[in-house]
Design a protein around this nucleic acid. Sequence first.
DNA 1: GTCTATACACAGATAGAC
DNA 2: GTCTATCTGTGTATAGAC
Lengths: 187, 187
Amino acid sequence: MPIQKTTREEIIKNSIKVFRRKGYYRTSMSDLAKEAGLTKGAFYHHFNDKEEVMRKSLQATINWFEKRVFSIAYEEGPSNEEKIVKMGEVIFQAFTQGDGGCFFANTILETAHVEDTFTKEIKHYFSLWEKALQNMLKDKYSGSEIEEMAERMIADIEGSIILMQLYKDYKPLKKALKRSALSILEK
Amino acid sequence: MPIQKTTREEIIKNSIKVFRRKGYYRTSMSDLAKEAGLTKGAFYHHFNDKEEVMRKSLQATINWFEKRVFSIAYEEGPSNEEKIVKMGEVIFQAFTQGDGGCFFANTILETAHVEDTFTKEIKHYFSLWEKALQNMLKDKYSGSEIEEMAERMIADIEGSIILMQLYKDYKPLKKALKRSALSILEK
DNA sequence: GTCTATACACAGATAGAC
DNA sequence: GTCTATCTGTGTATAGAC
């Protein structure tokens, strides 16, 4: 079997960069091919269509978040306070690197009212995030409180990411993460 | 002078509907023409290009928010508590009617990393909103507090609008507006 | 597995008749 | 002011040589 010069994983990694920055509809197959160092013809050898590239890109990003971010909530050893601060730091890195904001928020706003193509993946992402936050809140708060708090944290952070991109300034996100951490630390 | 069958204002009103639902790049000039009941050729008689239609659409929406929403903050008579509740109700109507979420958030996420074409208008919108909120907070809170609170309210509401569109459910927005109202009512 | 060439649809925008 | 017709570019996707 001959050597595979360009792997699907490499292509996806590059595609995520482009999709995050330009969005789904604005990104062309030529853009993705160029970023992968391939021609369009070669690119189509690896994927059937644009939708497939996007879906794999979303799934790969979800996997990354599970491994690198949400897993923090389930670590044994650190206290919940330490874990929520640590997760905040990693989230800050994730949403500021490569300057495209939140891949999932961008995608749902772009596609929700045109087609439901990626809704399932995006819902999955947010439910994982929610559960991770709830897990760190469950010792200090009651059942009805933790749901409201987790949803508020996510909304606050996602809204701040919008403001961050509008003003090209990380401060709004920094402040939102601080608010999230404080709301558990101060009790 | 002959009668103008289709006014620019009518066209803009219809264009806003389409842009909110489909986004800027996904909306074609044919879409806009059809919604206005015109052919593409006739449509171009009224506007030079797509960018101009979008800019006028954003500006018209800002004017609408100034008159119908943000003005509530400066009414004389009602208390700040009453005003923030009233503004919340109007905001709920504004962001749920026509089912496209927040026109400005959608647009900045779509365009911010491709071109800065509409940044000025969108910044203007958010600064008007911020000032309106700050005006209702200034009697109860100190200078440094009101800035943080207003930003948090906006972030929380905008993030909730994302969740609202993801789950096709108004509850997240309803809850965010309740949180905003409570944060001033409870002091 | 990668390339060039190409098919076909639709985008933004313009010209000119009525 | 609106129409039809058209120009030009680019989009997604495929065919077939190497």
